[in-house]
């Protein structure tokens, strides 16, 4: 199994495991509704669901706030976005689905999306991420760089 804790970490913001479930049926027995899933995942934590149907990978579920933090503070945003949208749908699916088989089928699809997220390398630090983002098109012109340190610096 991939080491999710490592895969979900970066230098600025990291998630740690809340709990794991060794099978899909165990997961649904314990957390059969969106409400129970949400209460089972504190901020900064994620849970993993393993199942043979996932072909040896796992489903990762974490909170929207953590997604936003990862999105803002790491270099993984585009992939995380895809993952999150699917997870959002998953909770809706739970609430609306009448046929459990359909739910499993949908979750299985979503799990495959989530798995993509777990294999993203996390070698770029937040500092590197910001400087890469910020230096786009910026040439070192030799101009003096100044930054305010207090209110009086920028108020007339």
């Amino acid at each position: 199994m991939p080491n999710q804790a490592v895969a979900l970490s970066n230098n600025c913001y990291s998630l740690t495991p809340a709990e794991s479930h060794s099978s899909w049926s165990q997961f649904t027995r314990k957390l059969g509704s969106a409400t129970s899933i949400i209460s089972a995942i504190p901020v900064g934590k994620f849970l993993e669901v393993f199942d043979n149907k996932f072909n040896g990978d796992s489903l990762i579920v974490f909170r929207r706030r953590d997604f936003d933090n990862l999105n803002m503070l790491s270099n993984m945003s585009s992939t995380v976005s895809r993952c999150l949208m699917q997870i959002d749908k998953m909770t809706t699916t739970y609430e609306n689905a009448k046929n459990p088989t359909d739910v499993i089928s949908l979750i299985h699809e979503q799990a495959r999306m989530a798995i993509e997220f777990t294999v993203i390398p996390t070698t770029t630090s937040t500092d590197e991420y910001f400087s890469t983002f910020l230096s786009e098109g910026e040439e070192d012109s030799g101009d003096e760089v100044t930054f305010p340190s207090s209110r009086k610096d920028i108020e007339g």
Binding site: S141, D143, E144, V145, T146, F147, P148, D153, I154, E155, G156
Partner: peptide, 12 residues
């Protein structure tokens, strides 16, 4: 340019 104090001061 990169005079962020002046830039922020102007915006203020």
């Amino acid at each position: 340019k990169r005079n962020n104090i002046e830039r922020a001061k102007f915006l203020t």
